[in-house]
């Protein structure tokens, strides 16, 4: 076992991990942040996507020890300071961009990374960027709409419902 320490959502978190412990396992089991989900074991689904030092990272592709000293952001730290939903979260609710909610944390974190990189993405840019996040419920229609809305763009071109 090795000690590891990182900042998660602005708070210092430390623990003892095996060399093989994945960042996602550390976040879920030691930091107690169960909002980050595990949907596959081949780094395909994106349910575990978090930000590490500002970059979008599938936390199943990274060992906990590799995140030593890193600044990690998870879904639990995304709401506004007063606890209300942030712009992206609110857009997902407004446009019904989630159903079962399991892929949602990764989807929101991915959307946040996209909008940081590209504040006004086109519909096809959104669809291409989100290829690494699988949703089985929504057919993506309302997720794309939510991301467009979160970026302040008109969603009128996408059907009302």
């Amino acid at each position: 076992m090795t000690s590891v320490k990182m900042t998660v959502n602005g708070k210092s978190v430390s623990g003892e991990v095996e060399g093989r412990t994945l960042l996602v396992s550390f976040l879920r089991e030691q930091a107690g942040l169960t909002g980050t989900h595990v949907g596959c074991d081949t780094s395909q689904c994106g349910a575990c996507l978090v930000h590490v030092n500002g970059d979008a990272v599938k936390s199943c592709t990274m060992l906990a020890l590799e995140a030593e000293g890193a600044d990690v952001a998870t879904i639990e730290g995304q709401a506004n300071a007063d606890g209300s939903l942030n712009v992206i979260q609110q857009a997902f609710q407004d446009h019904h961009g989630l159903q079962c909610g399991f892929c949602t944390p990764g989807m929101v974190m991915s959307a946040a990374a996209l909008l940081k990189e590209n504040p006004k993405p086109s519909e096809s840019e959104i669809r291409n960027y989100l290829q690494g996040n699988i949703c089985r419920c929504t057919g993506y229609h309302n997720i794309v709409k939510a991301v467009l809305a979160a970026s302040g763009q008109d969603v009128g071109a996408i059907a009302a419902e």
Binding site: T74, F102, E161
Partner: peptide, 21 residues
């Protein structure tokens, strides 16, 4: 009415309670 989903708030903030949690 197209009422917004109340369950979304917990899912969007990482506060869902799935079996693995």
């Amino acid at each position: 009415a197209s009422s917004k989903r109340r369950e979304d708030v917990r899912f969007l903030t990482g506060a869902g309670n799935y079996t693995d949690d």
